[in-house]
Design a binder for these strands. Structure first.
Lengths: 231, 231
DNA sequence: CGCTGCATTTCGCAT
DNA sequence: ATGCGAAGTGCAGCG
């Protein structure tokens, strides 16, 4: 990895056109040829970048460009998408290269998969007498997160989200419509379960007879097993 | 901005738990206190990070940690969300600080806004005799991208996307349902316009009587004006 | 290999 | 502030 702090301007032409006026920024060149342009703020997202696979060409500026103060030109191209990124460097303030090696990668634990596993194990959170039929119940238009039965043995289809948005309600509605045509399943009750449900989503869901269930992830995890804490 | 290349392991506990095994990585400390952990590959997304506002505390390791080879500990916390990120540093290979100043920011030009402008100008792409009523036509549940009339003077509502997905069809469907209840507008014909329309979205749209229109951005831009090229 | 759904999404705009 | 839609989204899993 090569790290360059430089006064530069940047132009990008691809799916959109973008321009960065002259300022001091970090240019990060990764081993795979990709380039990231970072400022000293914002989030983790670079101001501009070029994703691999791409090739970078360093070149001398023309006389005209030199008159504008450009001392160095970096042209980054992506063969497939014809994207083009040009870094016009005016002054290099720092330049260092480092051998990092291959990263073993991130180990994740959590999110929707875990939530689904927990709810499957604690299926009575749906209501007394509920039983799990199966997770990822396959339908013609995709898998329903959880299929269960209520105390009376009627089908219950659960759509799980971390954040319950209107999209999730639409998705569940499509599933329910389809599943209710299946005489082996009908009538199917819908449950929209999430850690947090947006008011609009709740309104839409309840308007369609879909039950809303707010899940307490920490509590569910606490019931599950109190041993898997990180610290 | 402070740049540190270090052999380190990283633990994150927040909405999920994540762990990075010992390896050499770039630690980027931004002026706003945020921290990014980058490897020498992947995309523009860091392996791990902490978003601002957050505070970072450097501390000495305990004797036990020192035995494991840890020479320095960075603890990053976010007051509001109680997220916690811990960097266990084993060896510092590079450490430099740089004054970058405030970035003037990115100037964008393109994507959906431009596509909307172009289609408004070239409204006959919808069909002969079509006329623009207005862009961002406001309804109770949000703005319709384009409202037009066809040759016979009937209303046409256009939903624009760069990539035509099933979500866009659902969105347009909600608009149409609402607008068709308005006697001044009804009957309203729906047009789903995008640079690329997914087969599933097309099927759903056509099943609901919504017309699909694939737009050629480059051609539309070419007709519009051939002067605004960057290079 | 293409499609689908998730994301510690982030970002920007409008209410 | 808050909610909502878009992103040069990236990424992983699965058919």
């Amino acid at each position: 990895m090569r790290l360059v702090i430089a006064k530069c301007s940047v132009d990008y032409a691809g799916r959109l056109s973008a321009h960065l006026p002259l300022a001091t920024r970090l240019l990060m060149l990764k081993a795979d040829g990709s380039l990231l342009v970072h400022s000293d703020g914002g989030s983790y997202k670079p101001l501009n970048w070029m994703s691999p696979p791409c090739t970078i060409a360093m070149s001398e500026p023309s006389d005209e460009q030199r008159e504008f103060g450009i001392t160095e030109l970096w042209t980054v191209t992506q063969g497939k998408t014809a994207d083009l990124l040009i870094v016009s460097i005016h002054e290099v303030l720092h330049d260092s290269a480092h051998e990092l090696g291959v990263d073993p990668g991130l180990q994740k634990d959590g999110v929707e998969a875990h939530l689904q596993k927990l709810l499957a194990e604690q299926i009575e959170l749906l209501g007394e007498g509920h039983r799990l039929v199966r997770r990822e119940y396959m339908t013609a238009i995709g898998p329903v997160d959880i299929l269960a039965t209520d105390a009376a043995g009627r089908s219950v289809a659960v759509e799980l989200k971390r954040r319950g948005d209107i999209d999730g309600v639409e998705q569940l509605t499509r599933y329910l419509e389809l599943m209710n045509r299946d005489p082996r399943l009908a009538p199917v009750q819908g449950v929209f379960a999430a850690q947090e449900i947006k008011p609009q989503a709740r309104t839409l869901a309840e308007d369609r007879g879909i039950r809303c269930l707010v899940l307490d992830y920490d509590a569910m995890r606490g019931i599950d097993n109190a041993d898997e804490r990180l610290f």
